[in-house]
């Protein structure tokens, strides 16, 4: 065991974060201010998610960390190691075995259960920020449910591109009240937010925590004549053949060859182990 307090943060900090989480769950989608601490990693690397995870973890938990769906990228590996060292928790790459999943910009393909907690890393928690830079004003807009500006933004998308061009961080309305930033997940993931697991959101630099309890209504904003569409690349995964997962595009050479692979590495691996294969898997090649 290390010389850190369990899960790195001191107890008073954890209590402050825990109080914010409880208020966040009581008012789904509302951003609760909290006294974010400096963490041993730079802003933008998940300091908010890490603090929420630290306040939520128990020694019995199994932690999974993903970065854009992948378990093996720098951000995911370093956060996993951080909690292995400071909390001594078990870690896993398998979605089904995890009880707490910290994520950067994806929701796992496998359906989450009531026994799981999903912690999002959030860069800009305020969905209205790029439309109105003043915090005093956006607070008032949330208080008055003044969300017309957001619909104007989506309308401008349509008038400019013929469709709603927002592809990630697509705004949602939670339980008919608060417009919320789902963090920069692809809009493909938006429909999954009505799930059985507890969803917690932590923004470290911006000092906000918010939450979505299980089975809470989460509606992506849209128009009657331009309904929301959960889009993805029109391909199957070239490794596991899945036609239902969110895909990353990988450039293979200078000749314009490319491949599409599942962004969720654990989902792709488990499908390949179950015998599925795609266009470029070794058996096919």
């Amino acid at each position: 065991m290390s010389d850190y307090n369990f899960a790195y943060l001191d107890e008073q900090t954890k209590r402050m974060i825990r109080r914010a989480i409880l208020k966040g769950l009581a008012v789904p989608g509302y951003q609760v201010p909290f006294a974010s601490r400096e963490m041993p990693m730079p802003y933008g690397w998940g300091t908010g998610g890490v603090q929420v995870s630290a306040a939520t973890l128990t020694p019995d938990d199994t932690l999974k960390v993903i970065d854009q769906g992948a378990d093996d990228t720098t951000n995911a590996v370093s956060i996993r190691k951080f909690f292995e060292k400071t909390a001594g928790v078990e870690t896993t790459e398998e979605t089904e075995k995890a009880s707490v999943i910290q994520t950067r910009h994806r929701i796992p393909e496998a359906e989450l259960t009531e026994d799981q907690i999903l912690v999002y890393q959030v860069p800009i928690p305020e969905p209205l920020r790029f439309l109105e830079p003043r915090e005093t004003e956006t607070r008032k807009m949330h208080a008055l449910q003044e969300y017309g500006l957001m619909h104007v933004k989506l309308y401008e998308d349509i008038s400019q591109h013929g469709a709603i061009a927002t592809a990630y961080a697509y705004p949602v309305k939670v339980e008919g009240r608060y417009v919320m930033d789902p963090s920069p997940i692809p809009k493909f993931d938006n429909p999954k937010m009505e799930m059985a697991a507890i969803q917690l959101f932590g923004a470290g630099r911006e000092q906000r925590i918010y939450a979505v309890p299980p089975y809470t209504q989460v509606v992506s904003l849209d128009f009657e004549d331009y309904p929301f569409e959960a889009s993805k690349a029109e391909h199957a995964c070239d490794l596991c053949g899945s036609e239902h997962s969110y895909l990353d595009e990988v450039i293979l050479d200078d000749a314009g060859n490319r491949m599409f692979v599942c962004s969720d590495t654990d989902y792709c691996r488990s499908r390949r182990e179950a015998g599925h294969s795609g266009r470029l898997s070794e058996e096919a090649a």
Partner: peptide, 16 residues
């Protein structure tokens, strides 16, 4: 640290 983590999990599950 450990007991309050377990207690908080119960409180959070209750509130959620």
């Amino acid at each position: 640290p450990v007991a309050s983590a377990h207690a908080f999990r119960a409180a959070m599950n209750a509130m959620a």
